[in-house]
Simulated scan of single mutants.
Amino acid sequence: MAAAAATKVPATMRAVQYDACGGGAEGLKHVEVPVPSVKKNELLLKLEAASINPVDWKIQKGMLRPFLPRKLPFIPVTDVAGVVVDVGPGVNGFQAGDEVVAMLNSFYGGGLAEYAVASESLTVKRPPEVSAAEGAGLPIAAGTALQALRSIGAKFDGTGQPLNVLITAASGGVGLYAVQLAKLAGLHVTATCGARNVELLKSLGANEVLDYRTPEGASLQSPSGKKYDGVVHCTVGISWSTFEPVLAPTGRVIDITPNFAAILKSGLHKVTFAKKRLVPLLLSPNKADLEFLVELLKDRKMKTLIDSRFPLSEASKAWQKSIEGHATGKIIVEMEG
């Protein structure tokens, strides 16, 4: 426990919060607040990096009310990496000094700060081969990509079928992980993106890449004529009537940002026993998936592509960049500097 004795935790910390829903980047405020304390089965982390996901500013907009934010003011962001500085009662797998990746509790957030409390159940050790920024990119984006591909039938133990998969908006945070994971599962990958990212996606292993602004890209038709066993749908504004003709007889569209209409369509497919289906996906965070993803980064079988990095003092710029929606990969906020 020498590491614990050497770690001095201050009484207060810098953080970024918002006091009301709405307001966008201008609604973020820099504050000095007490460092949170740990309860049973919790860890106190000195944060090194956090990644912003679209769900973070959607919560601020009020799109998930009345569920989130649970209370105001609210320190947003859940995907973080840092160093353990204190452990609560009941914690056995960690000690002060451990470098980790964690997904914070969505109800309480806390990622845009110098310190945060994480549950032991959603915290994993980060090996030296994985930087804080790379690890912070994983929990929501890579976790969603992994669970979406498993919903289609992808397997990562060599026993899976060589399925054909389409990944829309493949140059975004989820999409870039999805392309890499699909290739690891032995799938044939067609990806859509803007023209500037075509070569990037090919370099990550996509077999076919469609510029979504072209007629071919808008129709989602595979250049090789293949029908899709599954779609990891990472964007909005594409109707079921566009997907339906390009799907295999039992094809599934896994919608990672489902709206009310998508949920209704999914329900209709269920009650009519449709063979082609729209399936809404809500991430189910779990430690095993996060450990699997960190191991892939460690072994260089997958990488986190970082669009941009901002110090905590410029968190509002990172927030605005995410809202604008054109990032290629992850937007990272780093706590030092």
Rank of each mutant, 00 (worst) to 15 (best):
V55P: 04
G62K: 00
A113L: 11
E324F: 03
L187Y: 03
L64N: 04
L43S: 10
G23L: 08
V189N: 10
V85R: 08
T257L: 10
A4F: 12
M103S: 13
L146K: 14
L187N: 00
E295I: 04
K61P: 02
K321S: 11
I238W: 14
D86C: 13
A11D: 12
A261T: 14
Q221E: 03
I256N: 08
Q60F: 09
I140G: 13
A248R: 04
A5V: 12
A132Y: 09
A3F: 12
P127F: 05
L201T: 11
D289Y: 01
T304R: 06
Q60W: 01
K317N: 15
S203Q: 11
D79C: 03
P245S: 10
G143R: 07
A5N: 13
D255Y: 03
G186V: 08
A49Y: 10
G27M: 03
L43E: 03
K46D: 15
D255R: 09
R70S: 15
F260C: 15
P54Y: 05
A262E: 15
L45C: 14
P162N: 09
D86Y: 14
G172F: 00
I306F: 03
R65N: 04
G62I: 00
C234N: 06
T159C: 14
P89V: 00
F156P: 04
R65M: 15
T144P: 05
S284W: 03
L72M: 15
G267R: 07
L247Y: 02
L146Y: 11
D19V: 01
V33M: 08
G62Y: 00
E134N: 05
A195G: 02
P311Q: 12
Q320N: 03
T250E: 15
A182E: 13
I256P: 06
D86V: 07
A191H: 06
L122Y: 08
L138A: 04
K330Q: 09
P285Y: 13
G22V: 04
Q161Y: 11
N164D: 01
R70D: 15
P34F: 01
A132M: 13
V198F: 07
L166H: 01
L166D: 01
R150D: 02
V33L: 06
A102G: 00
K276N: 06
A262C: 14
R252I: 03
P162W: 06
T250C: 15
L163E: 03
K270R: 02
G22Q: 03
C193R: 10
A116E: 09
V87P: 13
V253S: 05
P66S: 12
S121H: 10
G137E: 02
V253W: 03
